[in-house]
Structure formats: C-alpha cells, structure tokens
Write a protein that binds this DNA or RNA. Structure first.
Lengths: 107, 107
DNA sequence: TTTAGTTATTCGGATATCCGAATATCCATA
DNA sequence: TATGGATATTCGGATATCCGAATAACTAAA
C-alpha cells in the first residue's frame, strides 16, 4: 500500500466512515478523547458488556483509529489521531444544521 | 425532534457516518461538490447502472445530505451543505496520516 | 394520448453486520 | 504452576445492506 490508487483510497475512506457508523463507537471515540482508558472502564461508561466493547474496539483498532498499550493486566486504548474528534464535531454541526432546516430525517 | 437527546443525536450522527460509508456515495458527494448534476450524469461519471445511483442518492437524500430540484425530465442533485466535503477531506487527511504511519489497515 | 427519455422503486439472493452467550487467551500474583 | 482478573475471540441467529434485473412512475413533446 505504498501508493494507493484513488479507488483504493475511496475504499479505505469508506471503511473509516463505516467504522464511525455506530453510536457506541462514536461514544468510544469521544470517551477516548477525554483521556486514554482501559477496556472495562469503557464498558462501564457505555453500560454494555465487555465483549461487546472489545469487538467495537477491535473495529476501531483494525482501522488504526485507536492504539493500545498494555499496563499490566489492563489494555489502555488511546486515540491514534486526536483530530478524528474534530471531524466528528464538524459532522455533528452539519447534523444540527440539517435538523434546524428540516425534521424528516431518518432515525 | 425539537430537542434530540444526546442518545438520539448519537444515533443520527452514526446514520450520517453510515451514509458516508460507501465508496460510491463518497464519490457522489465529491461530484456534487464540483457542481449540481442530474442522475444519469452521475451514473455516467461513476460508471454504474442508473438504478444503483438512484438508490445511493436516495440514501443521501433520506439523511438530508443532498437536495433535489426538477429540471424538466431531469432531477438535479446538489449538496445540501457544502461543508460535508470539508469533513470528507479532513477524514482523508487522517487516512493519509494513518497510511503513513502503518500499513496493516483493513481494506 | 401515445411515445421516448429520465428517474425511482421493488424483488431476490448474496453478503455483511450486529449482539448475546460461551469461551479462549493473556497477565500478574501467590 | 495454579488462580483470578482483564481482555479477546468465536459461534449462532437475527437483522441490515448490497447489487442486478425488471419494472413502475414521472415528464416533455409529438
């Protein structure tokens, strides 16, 4: 993947968007923006079972959106690139504008 | 949907990301950023059957990311909010940074 | 009102994603 | 090396998404 073609880049781009396309994963990224956290702390914050969080984290990890570091028995997750939350914030602003303009948006 | 809860907002947010999570739809948004275009023009540019483009456009339309205007027999699509491409560009930059750092990213 | 051109929808099967539950793996400590 | 806590993975069925093909719906012009 030294020089991805425009087509490959679009595919990777879409895969990142797909990784963001889940409410739990969005919350995970915002939580990790506050501070690095280990898995069970994230599971507590999201109030979902630990295996579910681990699967979501694996998806973010495969896309290289988060990184991991071992701390004894814990695995601490961090954002690979803090600017991902800026992207999420921009999208949220667009969403607010859309909601202001019209209300018949698919839930 | 006057005052969406944080949870609802996350869901809408994820739905927008999901709408972006397809290479064809990303290309559609970039094409519409260049200029408003009608359906068959978009189909030609993407080299996919017209019904496929219409279905992708419907997904973007349901999320209010694009708007339509009739011009005789044609239906002209436009970006509802031009800043969506800024978001896509930011994501693309993050993607480039990721690719620069490591190569084992899921295709 | 017929015809031709443009766009939207439906149907079907293949594929992908989701989650709960169970379990495997890894690590530190005793 | 045995134990317990933390994390990752696998399996299964339900659900969602994808695309090609066929067709329906709409528009303008004859």
């Amino acid at each position: 993947m030294a020089m991805p073609s425009a087509e490959e880049l679009n595919l990777l781009h879409a895969n990142i968007c797909k990784a963001l396309g889940d409410p739990k994963r969005i919350q995970l990224l915002y939580l990790l923006h506050e501070e690095p956290r280990h898995v069970s702390a994230l599971a507590d914050h999201l109030d979902v079972p630990q295996p579910t969080v681990s699967r979501h984290l694996a998806i973010l990890r495969e896309r290289a959106l988060v990184t991991t570091e071992r701390d004894g028995a814990l695995v601490v997750y961090s954002l690979a690139d803090q600017s991902i939350v800026a992207v999420l914030d921009s999208m949220r602003q667009i969403l607010r504008d859309i909601l202001d303009r019209q209300a018949d948006v698919i839930l």
